[in-house]
């Protein structure tokens, strides 16, 4: 069975590139343009992994992360935070909220894939 991955980012071009990358690797890919949409899609589609941008309209990545982690039904969903703000405080904040991994933009596609595979136990 294919792993399902949700990309939540408001930067269209980033979404296009990651979506293309992941599909090429055989993942089933969902897309959300803002935080609220991301939360709804996680609940509805139950992806295995969420690639979560921090700076999103309506609901930022941290809040989405917190909401997901407070829902026991979604405990199995892995979360990988993506942010353009590479400060240490942001990294530890994301991890403190229960994110499983953290990547700073811009990232290398290879590293992203490696991180995705690691989180999905592949």
């Amino acid at each position: 069975m294919n792993k399902k991955i949700l990309i939540a980012d408001d930067e269209q071009n980033i979404v296009i590139s990651i979506e293309f990358l992941l599909r090429r690797e055989g993942f089933e890919v969902l897309v959300a343009g803002d935080g609220e949409e991301a939360l709804a899609k996680v609940r509805g589609e139950r992806p295995d992994l969420v690639l979560l941008d921090v700076m999103m309209p309506k609901m930022n990545g941290f809040d989405v992360c917190q909401a997901l982690r407070s829902d026991p039904d979604l405990a199995g969903t892995r979360i990988l935070m993506l942010t353009a703000k590479g400060r240490d405080t942001e990294v530890s904040k994301g991890l403190g909220l229960g994110a499983d991994g953290y990547m700073t933009k811009p990232f290398s596609t290879k590293e992203l894939l490696a991180e995705v595979r690691k989180l999905l136990g592949m």
Binding site: L21, A84, K85, K105
Partner: peptide
């Protein structure tokens, strides 16, 4: 700056 760089790098690598 990082945001466009992210897309550029990702597309370039692809």
């Amino acid at each position: 700056l990082r945001t466009p760089l992210t897309s550029i790098r990702a597309f370039s690598e692809l």
